[in-house]
Design a protein around this nucleic acid. Sequence first.
DNA 1: CGCCTTAGGTTATAATGTTGCAATTCTACG
DNA 2: CGTAGAATTGCAACATTATAACCTAAGGCG
Lengths: 171, 171
Amino acid sequence: MSQNVYEPHNHSACVRHAIQEAQALCEEKGARLTRVRLRVLELIWQSHKPVGAYELLPLLAQEGFNSAPPTVYRALDFLLELGLIHRLSTINAYVGCNRPHGSHPVCFFICNCCGRAQELENDKLRAMTRQVEALLGVTVEQQMTELSGVCPACREHTTPETSGEHCCHDH
Amino acid sequence: MSQNVYEPHNHSACVRHAIQEAQALCEEKGARLTRVRLRVLELIWQSHKPVGAYELLPLLAQEGFNSAPPTVYRALDFLLELGLIHRLSTINAYVGCNRPHGSHPVCFFICNCCGRAQELENDKLRAMTRQVEALLGVTVEQQMTELSGVCPACREHTTPETSGEHCCHDH
DNA sequence: CGCCTTAGGTTATAATGTTGCAATTCTACG
DNA sequence: CGTAGAATTGCAACATTATAACCTAAGGCG
Ligand SMILES: [Zn+2]
Ligand SMILES: [Zn+2]
Ligand SMILES: [Zn+2]
Ligand SMILES: [Zn+2]
């Protein structure tokens, strides 16, 4: 929904939109968005900060769901398969997808300070892929780009005396 | 050394070049390329297929080196720090760096069939970074792109009857 | 040598992700 | 409806990857 998660925005709308998209996509593909799967997706969307698989365990347990690793990983696999979430391998965490419509090149910026991640649609990325294919004669099937650094919000909050510390945002 | 690891090439030259570069870099930076560190680097360079940390353990043990996880990870950390190797986070494996001269944007293509990885210098990548910085107002500090698919050698070797199997190359 | 810094040895443990199998629930079809 | 087959979940154990803590050994230098 939001094009820049580092700016204040109506996050409820992000969540609502994501869930609606998910339900529509599952309907369309005949996939079953069961209670656990839906709840995991909701939990992931609670913020734009990617969440680790093992962080989800206690959250699910708290709500009476079964909470063993396979439960979470199966839900994550399902959501990944449908493209509803992405896995950020540099930080071993999972985050909701902006436009869950089929497999697409993935590009994220991750703030090292607040942890929030912004998905990016980038035409330079496609150009790069084509260039690599032409150069090496390969066929690209998957691609993942992870940028990291400091977001505008964190740069602003990081005054000289607080530098080195981490600021904490909820989403 | 090689600009395309999927083509036949003089791999000894790759290794020799990498080790020389490493020694020069350590000299220049006053870093100590100890026996374990050098051997780990050599082992990583034995092929263009990224190697897992735990694969190195028995290889080191076999040569009389201490082989507990910390030994290997400390060597890897040292080599990563100097930029002599890269970590491919999508496959949790380590591979030698082409041009070990300071921190630089990392871009690899990884063949899903033979596992060999080719590092790429790509101007589209820099353009993308600038575009992202301008778009979000962020500051990019690190970046990693991992493409995967099928290399020319594997596409050629994968006839209809062998499709689905993996071909094995040494480097 | 004697002091300091860096590197390595050792043990244990944390963090992340998988396998295998039985039990349950859902779906489709007659 | 009722039942067979498929998909999903529960559960226990295990595999893989990485780190912490604490101490000893080795190298650099006055
Ligand atoms: Zn939001
Ligand atoms: Zn931030
Ligand atoms: Zn080579
Ligand atoms: Zn290949």
